Simulated assay, not measured.
Amino acid sequence: MYDAELMAVATGAAGTLVAAIATSGSEKMRLKVGRFFRRAAPDQQRAAAQAVDDTAAQLTSLSPEAQALAATAWVQLIAHYLDEHRDAMSEVDELAVPDLPVSNVWNQHNTGTGTFIGGDVHGGVTFNYGGASDGGR
Results as ranks from 00 to 15, higher is better:
Y2A: 15
D3F: 12
D3N: 15
A4T: 14
E5Y: 07
V9H: 09
V9A: 14
A10N: 08
T11N: 04
T11L: 11
T16P: 00
V18Y: 01
A19N: 10
A19L: 02
A19E: 10
I21P: 00
A22F: 08
S26H: 01
K28E: 13
M29R: 02
M29S: 00
R30K: 15
V33G: 01
G34P: 04
R35H: 09
R35N: 14
R35S: 06
F36W: 01
F36S: 00
R38V: 04
R38H: 02
R38A: 06
R39P: 00
A41K: 11
D43Y: 04
D43W: 10
Q44W: 03
Q44E: 06
Q44G: 00
Q45N: 03
A48G: 02
A48D: 01
V52T: 08
D53K: 07
D54P: 02
T55P: 00
A56S: 07
A56T: 05
A56E: 03
A57W: 06
Q58K: 07
T60R: 13
T60P: 05
L62E: 11
P64S: 14
E65H: 09
A66W: 06
Q67T: 14
Q67M: 14
A68S: 10
L69Q: 12
L69M: 10
A70V: 01
A71T: 13
A73G: 15
A73Y: 06
A73H: 11
W74E: 02
Q76Y: 09
L77Y: 02
L77T: 04
I78G: 03
A79P: 01
A79H: 02
Y81I: 02
Y81K: 02
L82Q: 10
R86M: 11
A88S: 13
A88T: 11
M89W: 05
E91G: 05
E91S: 06
V92Y: 09
V92L: 09
D93K: 07
D93N: 03
D93Y: 01
E94N: 07
V97G: 00
V97F: 08
P98T: 10
D99P: 07
L100P: 05
W106T: 12
N107D: 08
Q108M: 13
H109Y: 10
H109E: 11
H109K: 11
T111P: 03
G112K: 08
T115A: 05
T115W: 06
T115R: 05
F116L: 04
G118V: 07
G118M: 04
D120I: 10
G123W: 04
G123D: 07
G123E: 05
G123S: 03
G124K: 06
G124V: 09
V125F: 07
T126H: 01
F127M: 15
F127V: 13
F127K: 08
Y129R: 14
Y129V: 15
G131T: 09
A132S: 12
A132M: 14
S133D: 13
S133L: 05
S133H: 04
D134Y: 12
G136M: 03
R137L: 09
